[in-house]
Design a protein around this nucleic acid. Structure first.
Length: 121
DNA sequence: ATTTTGACGGCAC
DNA sequence: CGTGCCGCCAAAA
């Protein structure tokens, strides 16, 4: 995989549970906002969905991609709901509430590595 | 080397 | 709020 994909996965891996990032946000986090599209391309080659929560990457609108998803958009939505990600409607995530960006505190926050912990709060 | 193809995003309708 | 188009740019054919 290219260096870009590597960076993309590095960012995605840090997305805490219950939060999401848009493809463009990931691209911007990498420093190349123009390659938002390529982020999706990278996700398509996700080596290990268990390590890289690509399901937390959605459209800027909060919509979920309808193609090339591991188990279909429904599965992705299901995973997000499971994490407590708020939805505006049946097809859109409430980005205003769960949009995340690197730099926010992930220290005490649960990340992909904390799958064991439940969202109970 | 050239053409086609997108897990996108923005903007016009 | 949904559709359609165009611009980006690397990867695949």
């Amino acid at each position: 995989m290219g260096a870009f994909s590597d960076k993309a996965f590095d960012i995605v891996r840090r997305i805490p549970r219950g939060r999401v990032m848009s493809y463009g946000a990931v691209a911007r986090a990498i420093g190349e906002p123009r390659k938002s599209r390529f982020v999706g391309y990278a996700m398509r080659n996700n080596p290990d969905p268990d390590i890289y929560p690509c399901h937390r990457v959605v459209f800027k609108d909060g919509a979920i991609c309808d193609s090339y998803v591991f188990g279909g958009p429904e599965v992705q939505k299901r995973l997000l709901e499971q994490e407590g990600v708020p939805f505006l409607d049946d097809t859109h995530v409430d980005m205003a509430k769960c949009a995340w960006t690197p730099g926010e505190d992930t220290f005490g926050r649960p990340t992909d590595i904390d799958w064991e912990r439940e969202i109970g709060d």
